Amino acid sequence: MTDTTTMPLADLIAQRLRDALAPTHLVVTNDSHHHAGHMGDDGTGETHFSVEIVADGFIGQSRVGRQRMVNRALADLLATRIHALAIRARAPGDGD
C-alpha cells in the first residue's frame, strides 16, 4: 500500500486518475507557483493543478461529462486539498 500522506499531490492525482480512468495519456502539472499569495494558496505549494488526460472512457461523453468523471475520481482531494483544477479531457482521436 502506498503512503499517500507523504506523496506529492501531483503524484497522488495521477495515481487516482490512472486507477479510475486508465488513461492512454496523462500529464498532471502543479501550477501553484503561479498563484502564490492568491486566494486558495495555503502555503503548501500544492493547491492549483492542470490535468491533460486522454482515456477511452471519454468516448461518447460531453466535455462536461468528461470533467465530471475526473472530478469524481478526485472528489475527496477537491474537497480538502485542491483549490483549483484545470482539466483538458479528450477521447483517443479527438482533435486539439
Rank of each mutant, 00 (worst) to 15 (best):
N30D: 15
M1L: 09
S50M: 03
D31F: 00
R81M: 04
L74G: 12
D31K: 04
I59G: 03
H25Q: 13
Q61S: 11
D56T: 05
I82C: 03
T44C: 07
D31T: 06
G37Y: 12
R63S: 05
H83T: 01
H83W: 09
G45N: 03
N71L: 11
L77W: 13
I82Y: 05
L12W: 01
G45C: 02
T47M: 07
A91D: 12
G43S: 12
T29R: 15
A55P: 15
M7L: 11
A73R: 06
R68G: 02
E52T: 09
D11H: 05
A84H: 08
S32P: 00
R88Q: 12
L12F: 03
I87D: 08
R88C: 10
R81S: 08
H48L: 05
D41P: 00
V64D: 07
G40R: 03
D3V: 06
T4A: 09
D3F: 12
R72I: 02
M69A: 03
F58P: 06
L12K: 04
P92F: 03
D11V: 04
I82R: 04
R16N: 14
Q61L: 11
H48C: 01
A91S: 10
L26S: 11
G43W: 07
F58L: 03
Q61K: 14
D42H: 06
P23N: 00
L26T: 14
V51N: 09
G45T: 02
A14V: 08
G45Q: 03
I53N: 00
G40N: 04
R18L: 00
G65A: 14
G57T: 07
D31Y: 00
A86Q: 14
L77G: 06
V64Q: 01
D41K: 01
V54L: 07
R16D: 06
A75T: 10
P8M: 04
F49Q: 00
L77H: 15
A86E: 15
A84I: 00
R63P: 12
P23Q: 00
D94C: 00
G60V: 02
L78D: 04
I13N: 08
T29Q: 09
T29F: 13
D42R: 06
H34E: 13
G40A: 04
F58V: 02
V51L: 10
I87G: 01
V64M: 04
T6S: 02
A86G: 12
N71K: 11
L9E: 01
S32N: 01
L26W: 07
A10L: 06
H83R: 13
T4N: 11
T2K: 06
V54K: 13
Q61N: 08
D96N: 11
R63V: 12
R90C: 07
L85M: 11
M1Y: 07
H25N: 13
A55Q: 08
V27L: 12
A89I: 15
A36D: 09
L74F: 10
P8I: 11
G60F: 05
T6G: 05
P92N: 02
A55G: 14
R72Y: 07
R81Y: 12
S50R: 05
V51I: 14
